[in-house]
Nucleic acid binder design. Structure first.
Lengths: 354, 354
DNA sequence: CTGAAAGCGCTAACAG
DNA sequence: CTGTTAGCGCTTTCAG
């Protein structure tokens, strides 16, 4: 008869680890591990006194559950990923900040993944972004999802929320980018401007999908409403960067004739570039040229830039909230939340006539 | 004799999951799970032919190991956390970007944690930042570590690297901030400036420890070397923001007498604020006032700002590399890597005399 | 070079 | 309300 021989641990714990387990707590509290589990997770069906005893034992032992063990057992990781094209830009950093705050509040971990680091081919090889079972859900920020991804997420039951881009079966948070363009250019038209230049993104930019297109469509709509139209040559790519905006503005403002009297930059950073370009050309803003941006970047106010404000941190926060809601098995409600934008008039725009 | 009865799964898998396990692969390849594990992880002692067969089976089943299971079994999570005061600022976003790139390359997941979300008291309650066993290591960016944390990390064997702040037993990546101040102000002194104002952080700011102090010390050293000294009233807090820099510059440049002929801003963002302040006051830069910043923010070049360049993305990358190296059990080498900085002369500084 | 077996620490039926 | 028990899917000795 072979007695159950106490086996030595199958493998070495990493240096210096010496944590207490749920079993230690159970022994200390004089209950079973199941009860400890229930008590500590706040489940019902635990006597008040028992719960108190368990909690005290846990505290005394400085016990913290091993997340990997509970993830394995429960099949949920309480972790979500936010996938961004890159993280060191004003917009994406702010989205992540909003998402992080909400996740932290709800006790979820937040993984940051750049879509460049999990390139499309890698995703194909390793499954949808290789994050399967690592996260309960994902937030995609201006990242293209292929149909194969969508199918796989559905199959795996991964929660998904998108920002900016609306992808059929998933909830999304976005701006009314048409309204953005309409507000900005409507304002300029109202001020009497008739020749308006646009600092756009790049046609080939895979990152910002409909964003530039929609903003430009809105601009065109505002122009049309005023009986004007948008010359194709008045739209110049600015890559959404300060430098790109500078270069684009140099092109538009440097024209000997047909020089626009106003500029609509699709982002504040491009508008900053335009501000510099104007200075280089000896043009005064708003004296010679009016300028509107988009975002309400923290530098917009000190620079006196008129802009269309969006609340980027809030967008990130709402996306996270929607995702966690969805993960909470509240399920079902696929909503497309279109956030409002507003025109903030500052010193960079002026009536053309006086 | 009781036959092993095939038990029904203990719990429901989350909706729609249908993944293959290591066992499926083992069956498909006609080997044991142990062999699959070894083969797939590239361990030695696996016949070439066997490994090939296993890999093919895995591919065929679209198998991906469950990270939670392997983490639990192996005691390592291949996840690291980067702890920042907040993530939506130029500096921190860039640090995170650098760290993310390296982690992604090495197959590590990166958790972003803001120190505000895991406030000090929470940390006390829940253990060192509550990340125990969730991550193999952590990167602290300008975050204060208390002795209790340090002790706990040591005890738990958590890898730690700090950025900015050097904390006794851990490797760190930092700048020579004294050199930063010396370079910036040395440049100004060389140009003949004798009354130099400093746009600083805040004394009470818990976030940036020695950074402002060191930069100011460097500034003072450069002044001293030139036979000058730093008037206490010439140092004004600017909170490391554009607005703060603007306000501080208004104070310094608005003085009727003793107006500085040059300004040293401890960050480019404050320098941008100063640029605006000068304009508001009708002062020309560099005509009336010279200005030096720190960072080489992407807006510095278009703004023609002379600055002391640091490579923030690189700092993040090096911190991650150091951490992963440490986790690779290469252990031991606690190094303090002080990154170089360099003066970038642009248009915002000029010799005082001509 | 490969297989068998014992867990990692926790959760979730199920039966009291 | 609480204990028992069977795994979650993988890694790692140990014995061939």
């Amino acid at each position: 008869m072979a007695a159950m021989s106490p086996t030595r641990p199958a493998m070495p714990r990493p240096a210096g680890a010496d944590r207490s387990t749920i079993e230690d707590v159970a022994v200390a509290a004089g209950v079973s591990v199941a009860t400890v589990s229930r008590a500590l997770r706040g489940l019902p069906n635990v006597a008040v006194s028992t719960r108190a005893r368990v909690q005290e034992a846990a505290r005394g032992l400085n016990y913290r559950p091993d997340p990997n063990a509970s993830r394995l057992a429960a099949g949920r990781s309480r972790t979500v990923a936010v996938v961004v094209p890159f993280i060191n830009s004003w917009y994406f950093a702010n989205v992540v900040a909003g998402a992080e705050a909400v996740c932290a509040d709800e006790g979820y971990d937040l993984l940051v993944v750049t879509s460049s680091s999990s390139a499309a081919d890698a995703a194909a090889v390793t499954g949808a972004f290789g994050l399967d079972r690592r996260v309960d859900g994902m937030i995609f920020v201006e990242v293209a999802l292929e149909d194969a991804h969508i199918a796989e997420f559905a199959r795996l039951g991964t929660g998904v929320v998108t920002i900016g881009q609306r992808t059929a079966p998933f909830p999304s948070i976005s701006l009314d980018n048409v309204a953005v363009g309409r507000l900005a250019v409507g304002h300029l038209v109202e001020l009497g401007h008739r020749h308006i230049g646009v600092l756009a993104g790049q046609a080939e930019d895979p990152v910002h999908f409909d964003v530039p297109g929609d903003r430009i469509a809105g601009a065109r709509a505002a122009l049309t409403a005023g009986g004007l139209d948008l010359h194709p040559t008045s739209v110049v790519a600015g890559r959404f960067t300060v430098e790109g905006g500078h270069d684009a503005a140099m092109v538009l403002l440097g024209r000997a004739e047909e020089r626009p009297t106003a500029l609509f930059a699709l982002s504040d950073e491009m508008a900053f570039g335009a501000l510099l370009a104007a200075r280089h050309l000896g043009l005064d803003i708003p004296g010679d040229v009016s300028l509107v941006g988009v975002d309400d970047h923290e530098m917009a106010a000190p620079m006196a830039l008129t802009t269309v404000r969006q609340h980027v941190v809030d967008v990130g926060a709402r996306a996270a909230a929607a995702l966690l809601h969805q993960l909470g098995a509240h399920a079902a409600v696929v909503q497309h939340d279109v956030r409002p934008v507003e025109l903030v008039r500052r010193g960079s725009t002026r009536r053309i006539d006086p």
